[in-house]
């Protein structure tokens, strides 16, 4: 789907006259923003495709329709062969006991340090659209974003 962007203004344009990436995102806070194509072209009509005439066929020329439909058609990526059904959340890991006697890993030696994590819980057998509650082994995966690498 075409991204929305904030109405161009001086404050959202950097020194080279190119909008910064963050300003191109749709605003969830209700700030007014305008629909564009992926190239940044403002779109004036998102309701009707381009017709030869009233009740006429749609034209190949309609690059806005083609871009929107093509992007939509290509949304899905292959799902995981196992653990396809899962749900995750961000959080942190806080060390309470140092293992400095055994390891140099900072994540396990700096007591009180909070390391950002992302955890994902999953089933094994079902596809991405399957139920949450089958009798199945569960996946419990945690990624640590440490200062020494993920």
């Amino acid at each position: 789907m075409a991204k929305s962007r904030k109405k161009p203004s001086k404050s959202s344009v950097d020194g080279d006259g190119v909008e910064s990436r963050g300003k191109r995102q749709a605003k969830a806070d209700g700030t007014e923003c305008f629909l564009t194509t992926n190239q940044g072209l403002p779109v004036s009509d998102n309701q009707n495709s381009l017709h030869t005439s009233q009740n006429g066929p749609v034209l190949l020329e309609d690059f806005i329709l083609r871009e929107k439909i093509t992007h939509f058609d290509h949304e899905r990526i292959p799902e995981r062969i196992v653990h396809a059904r899962g749900t995750g959340a961000h959080g942190y890991f806080e060390l309470t006991e140092s293992l400095a006697d055994y390891t140099t890993a900072r994540v396990l030696t700096e007591v009180g340090m909070r390391t950002p994590v992302f955890a994902r819980f999953s089933t094994v057998a079902g596809g991405a659209g399957s139920a949450d509650t089958p009798r199945d082994v569960r996946g419990f995966a945690v990624k640590f974003y440490t200062s020494e690498g993920n």
Binding site: S49, T52, Q54
Partner: peptide, 10 residues
């Protein structure tokens, strides 16, 4: 096409 408008458009 049977219509009153024969101009190209959205």
């Amino acid at each position: 096409p049977y219509s009153s408008s024969n101009s190209k458009g959205r």
